[in-house]
Design a protein around this nucleic acid. Structure first.
Length: 409
DNA sequence: GTTGAGCGTT
């Protein structure tokens, strides 16, 4: 079985670049997902059937698609967050029958007499939670909360399986909507959703459209867990409906209280580096500090300028790496620092502590003068990811030692 | 030439 699978993907008439490893990675992931799905039934040629599911809150029934004769749990949960299964009334006995769930928990298996001619009802883990989710006040955050209801402890990372043991990973924030850029205008919602369901559980997704219904070319997706979100973000280049897409954490949306994402400025780069190298080096390094950490984004300015930005899923990992001061990439040492947010992203307004001339030369606040109080343990007390602030504004101001001009106070 | 940036709500 070591032969290349002769898939009918010969229709790649478009751009077939030499970016191999990322694509292979995608294929591997998709293959995994495929294997997980091809359980028993094998009727690929059949048109997708739909089953009718009654909404527990009494709204209109929803039709869910079947895939190869099964219904994906992720599909169910995308429509009914918190759902753990389906049931239907047995016409002979009048009793409710539960739809069988396969051991992996990913698939709902067809009843022995098929999906047809039945109305299914959703089984929700906790009714009270669902009610709470529907309360308008907390609608958005409740939506997120729902996800974990079937599996109360967070499912950090699929690879580790059950969450029986606590890991040396601190609690990361909830998944966020990820922006998907470069979506083909003809790509439909189903296809869009399906793509991400092959990677993990999708709780929300949407292609943005104009008023006339035409696609804007981008969309959003939210995965059920941070682990799955990281899985998505770790893929450098997505191929959705035959088109290359980028998936990123939207600007300004990653900081809800605490940042779960952290960006590193990488200086002193040579023009030989490419994105994949940076992903590898920083990804490996990050995992030595936080095992679930992944590189979620790499930005290299187009006319090469000797620097790059590497974003990690873990602020702690980013801090840890940066605290080393440098890292070896391609045999050369590169400079590291925490990326400064752009002006509009700075929650504290302009640089109060810095004379105007220093605003572009920010000496990192985290590389503190030696003659001052000891390091405040960056991640212990880090209320805001990008800017470790002193508790007292008078404690510390930064200016160049040789500078004769006075600080403003 | 050591600080970027495709971006949503009904």
């Amino acid at each position: 079985m070591t032969e290349n699978s002769p898939k009918a993907e010969s229709t790649e008439s478009k751009s077939e670049d030499n970016v191999k490893s990322p694509l292979d990675e995608v294929k591997e992931i998709k293959k995994e997902a495929e294997l997980a799905q091809t359980g028993s039934a094998e009727k690929k040629d059949a048109d997708p059937e739909f089953i009718t599911v009654q909404d527990p809150s009494g709204e209109e029934p929803i039709e869910l698609p079947t895939v190869d004769g099964i219904v994906l749990m992720s599909t169910l949960q995308a429509s009914f967050p918190g759902a753990t299964g389906l049931k239907y009334k047995n016409p002979k006995t009048g009793a409710n029958r539960a739809v069988q769930v396969d051991p992996s928990g990913l698939k709902l298996l067809a009843p022995t007499d098929g999906w047809e001619n039945k109305t299914f009802h959703v089984i929700i883990a906790s009714q009270s939670e669902r009610v709470r989710a529907l309360s308008s006040a907390d609608a958005t955050s409740a939506k997120r909360r729902k996800v974990g209801s079937s599996d109360d402890s967070d499912s950090d990372d699929g690879r580790d399986g059950r969450s029986g043991r606590k890991r040396a990973v601190e609690r990361e924030s909830q998944p966020v909507d990820l922006i998907v850029l470069g979506v083909d205008f003809k790509t439909g919602d189903e296809c869009f959703q399906k793509y991400f369901e092959d990677i993990g559980t999708v709780v929300f997704c949407e292609i943005k459209r104009k008023s006339d219904g035409s696609s804007k070319g981008f969309g959003f997706v939210r995965m059920a867990s941070v682990g799955e979100q990281n899985k998505v973000l770790a893929i450098p280049q997505h191929m959705i409906d035959g088109r290359r897409c980028d998936v990123k954490v939207p600007d300004g949306r990653d900081k809800q209280g605490r940042p779960s994402i952290s960006r590193i400025f990488v200086g002193r780069l040579t023009d030989k580096v490419d994105e994949n190298q940076l992903r590898k080096v920083f990804g490996d390094e990050a995992k030595t500090y936080v095992e679930t950490a992944v590189v979620t984004d790499v930005f290299i300015p187009k006319p090469f300028r000797g620097f790059a930005f590497v974003t990690l899923s873990s602020a702690e990992a980013a801090e840890s790496i940066v605290s080393k001061g440098s890292l070896t990439v391609n045999g050369l040492s590169v400079g590291l620092s925490i990326a400064q947010p752009r002006e509009e992203n700075q929650p504290f307004g302009p640089d109060y502590g810095l004379p105007a001339g220093y605003r572009n030369r920010r000496d990192r606040p985290d590389r503190r003068p030696q003659n001052e109080s000891p390091l405040p343990m960056p991640f212990v007390r880090q209320d805001f990811g990008y800017r470790p602030q002193q508790s007292s504004p008078l404690d510390r101001r930064y200016w160049s030692p040789g500078d004769t001009s006075r600080p403003p106070w």
